[in-house]
Write a protein that binds this DNA or RNA. Structure first.
Lengths: 228, 228
DNA sequence: CTGACGATTCGATGCGGATCGAAGCATGCA
DNA sequence: TGCATGCTTCGATCCGCATCGAATCGTCAG
């Protein structure tokens, strides 16, 4: 009876609401600071620090200090996989969440993953880009093609400037609702900024929902057509 | 930020050592009784009962009562998937396990379940009967059809006499080794008696193994053919 | 019917751990 | 240097929950 890997130890780490919220926040793939994670989880910095220590000690997170900030990220894709499976089970587990907010459909269609577009529309956008060979997908690692750079310039995004920053230009970001990838990275952020600038959509306060207007949605679909 | 599925609720269920041990014990796919799971987890029956209620309520287990026993099994392959991923992550940090070895093959193939046939052959027999519409399965409640009664008479089992007793004629009986049902009840007993009478198989002393001879096995498969 | 056994419920106990306040350390900026 | 900011450590508190003893219910055997 005492045999087998210690699954309880890992699961207990995921079992605390504060820690689970932190991990869910990191599902986007980007690293966040301890303070951001504390706010995300709704706890004080002291408590968050304790949680983050436990998570890194348990091998679920990797930490790295940079100046006076402490950045944390998921330890690997296996952790993200595990979280996704958990979300899948929790979804049909019947128990709906306590807060009956605006709720799923809008979130599922379009939401922000920190600073870029996620949800069905986010996935559709990346699909469209790869279909037209504007973005290349080499085993999960994304890169902008020459044609893609031209497209972006025409769209109002100067990729030369973006590539200069430390942040990767393109990043495949796993989507929990659709179970496919959408576009993250500096380019993903720039594209979402364009969506806002063109008034195709606006961010709903206090929520992650990105609300598209009817003409905005049509324009979006025209700019990023999906194959039949 | 309270968005997304409630992963903490599920993870917390897996986070208790006793519950984790129970789930690990069920990874083989067999259903186990509450008492067996209590022993497996190293807790008293009272505690185990509480844990099992939580797990079923959380959608991770399905329970089924049979006589004075309560059988529990994993709710589905998604749960098994999740556990497997957890084990994969838990393996990294530490102590290995010695997986409970492959169960005795003979027990798995054919054994007695009280007085009727269980194991792979028992399941195959019930499958064959339902496939040929000799037995009807209405949501887990089995009944013999008119054609079935004719088949049994030709096979040497007089069902009219059996139906007179207090014991139900047909009963779906959950199989530990395979996660499916085999035929119990008075008819199940009568059929196993026929198997003995025809010398297709004999009971091994001091064990639950039902040992088929080579020609006996062939005859059995001919009498209860499985669909291709 | 009676006795035995397995499963469950109830109530009480005790421990682990989440949480926060206060203080201690680093780093960055003027 | 001095001050502000962000993270961590320490100590104390408090709640949740796993655990078990005792009792109850249901099923099976005789």
């Amino acid at each position: 009876m005492r045999l087998g890997p210690d699954i309880a130890r890992i699961a207990a780490l995921l079992g605390d609401p504060a820690r689970a919220n932190m991990l869910a926040a990191l599902m986007g793939g980007q690293a966040l600071t301890a303070g951001e994670l504390a706010r995300e989880a709704g706890v004080t910095p002291q408590t968050a620090s304790s949680h983050l220590a436990k998570l890194t000690d348990g091998g679920l997170l990797t930490g790295r200090r940079q100046g006076r900030h402490a950045y944390f990220a998921l330890a690997g894709s296996e952790v993200a996989d595990l979280l996704e499976k958990l979300m899948g089970l929790a979804d049909r587990g019947g128990h709906q969440r306590a807060r009956p907010g605006p709720r799923e459909p809008a979130l599922r269609q379009a939401r922000v993953c920190y600073d870029h577009l996620a949800g069905e529309l986010g996935v559709a956008m990346l699909d469209s880009l790869t279909d037209r060979a504007l973005v290349e997908d080499r085993e999960g690692s994304l890169s902008l093609t020459a044609e893609g750079a031209g497209f972006m310039r025409a769209f109002g995004v100067e990729t030369a400037g973006l590539a200069r920053g430390r942040r990767p230009l393109c990043k495949a970001c796993l989507d929990w609702s659709v179970r496919r990838s959408h576009l993250g990275g500096a380019l993903g952020q720039a594209l979402l900024d364009q969506v806002y600038a063109r008034r195709w959509a606006r961010r709903i306060e206090g929520s992650r929902v990105v609300a598209f207007s009817a003409p905005g949605l049509a324009a979006f679909r025209a700019a990023f057509p999906s194959r039949p």
